[in-house]
């Protein structure tokens, strides 16, 4: 590994001893740009005009610049679903940009897989602009092979009445670093993030999700469900930021985590920042082991404890995947989950 980058910074920070203010990620010496955009209809784009911030933040931006990952604007050409399926062969870094014009709807699916890839990294940044009344549905499945470091970073801006729905499914495999930031810039803009995750065998998932309410009557929701076992570690930073002027806005984040043994580390950091009086922000978390009566019920029906645990892991992922709006994308993702769990 050639470089260590710091990403997913918590703003504002808290006690250093808790080790949640950011995360250090070891990255390989060289990455190839253009892997994700292969086969897509793209054109170059100057993202500085877009002025979009992302969840992983400036640390990743510098790294992408240094590695020549040039942003490209992906043309959907009116496709009902734009599916981008990649198998990672070697380290790559890409920035894909999507723009939904006024009243337009775009459905995007990304699926990342790999074989065993020690010391390799896949970096994908997605930038989305949703114009007035537009709707963007992004579904992501990340199912890396052992050893691959995955950095998945999203930045979006929603104009008046725009909707951005993001559903992410992270299966077990290797370490994943995920960032997502949505700026609800226009009145009555709406955004929803749903994440299903399974982590096991010492794998890490480090997340930084930010919903910034900048206009009146905006609404946002972050919902995380997952299961951890066998020395897995997960950090979820979720920030709802009500900026002065976003009156009558509503932000909610919720988390439901199953801890399947006592070797896991589950960190949850759900921030609510508020400089506006007339808003409603809330957070709720339930963290613990599965109810024994539920396990017992399944065992009494002839299901082994191991299988029962698999069912719960699958349920955590399906809880998110069921919210994928596009039928084809949803069936695809549910199929992957069913096959794997």
């Amino acid at each position: 590994m050639a470089e260590t980058i710091k990403i997913n910074s918590l703003v504002p920070p808290t006690w250093n001893r808790l080790k949640v203010n950011d995360v250090a990620v070891d990255m390989p010496a060289s990455l190839t740009a253009g892997v994700f955009s292969e086969g897509l209809n793209t054109e170059t784009v100057n993202v500085s005009d877009w002025n979009i911030e992302t969840g992983c933040g400036a640390g990743l931006s510098e790294f992408l610049d240094k590695n020549g990952a040039k942003p490209v604007l992906v043309k959907t050409d009116g496709a009902k679903l734009l599916a981008i399926k990649k198998t990672c062969e070697s380290s790559s870094a890409d920035v894909l940009c999507f723009e939904a014009g006024e009243g337009e709807t775009i459905n995007i699916l990304t699926d990342l897989t790999s074989g065993e890839k020690p010391d390799e990294a896949s970096v994908l940044r997605i930038l989305i602009k949703a114009g007035k009344g537009a709707k963007v549905n992004l579904a992501q499945v990340i199912r890396p092979g052992k050893g691959l470091t995955v950095v998945n970073d999203i930045g979006t801006v929603a104009e008046e009445n725009a909707q951005i729905n993001i559903v992410q499914v992270f299966t077990d495999g290797s370490d994943i670093y995920s960032g997502c930031r949505t700026d609800l810039k226009g009145k009555e803009a709406y955004s929803e993030n749903r994440v299903g995750l399974v982590r096991t065998n010492g794998q890490t998932l480090d997340m930084n999700y930010v919903m910034k309410h900048l206009a009146p009557k905006t609404k946002a929701e972050i919902n995380v469900s997952g299961a951890l076992s066998k020395n897995a570690q997960k950090t979820f930073r979720g920030t709802i930021d009500f900026v002065r002027g976003c009156s009558e806005s509503d932000g909610a984040e919720s988390e439901s985590m199953l801890l399947l043994d006592d070797t896991v580390v589950n960190k949850t950091v759900p921030l609510i920042l508020c400089t506006e009086e007339n808003v409603a922000g809330s957070h709720g978390a339930t963290i613990g082991k599965p109810a024994e009566d539920m396990i017992f019920y399944m065992m009494s029906r002839g299901i082994s404890r191991e299988k029962a645990i698999k069912i719960l892991e699958r349920a955590s992922l399906e809880a998110a995947a069921n919210h994928i709006e596009d039928d084809e994308a949803r069936e695809y993702v549910l199929g992957i989950i069913a096959e794997r769990y």
């Binding site: 808290t14 949850t268 007339n278 808003v279 409603a280 809330s282 963290i287």
Partner: peptide, 23 residues
């Protein structure tokens, strides 16, 4: 601002957190 951190290292725990902000 509300800045909570929960760091849970056992499966045998029951942890709940709720935060609300508003007028």
């Amino acid at each position: 601002d509300t800045i909570p951190v929960m760091d849970i290292r056992t499966d045998d725990a029951d942890v709940g957190h709720e935060a609300t902000i508003g007028s």
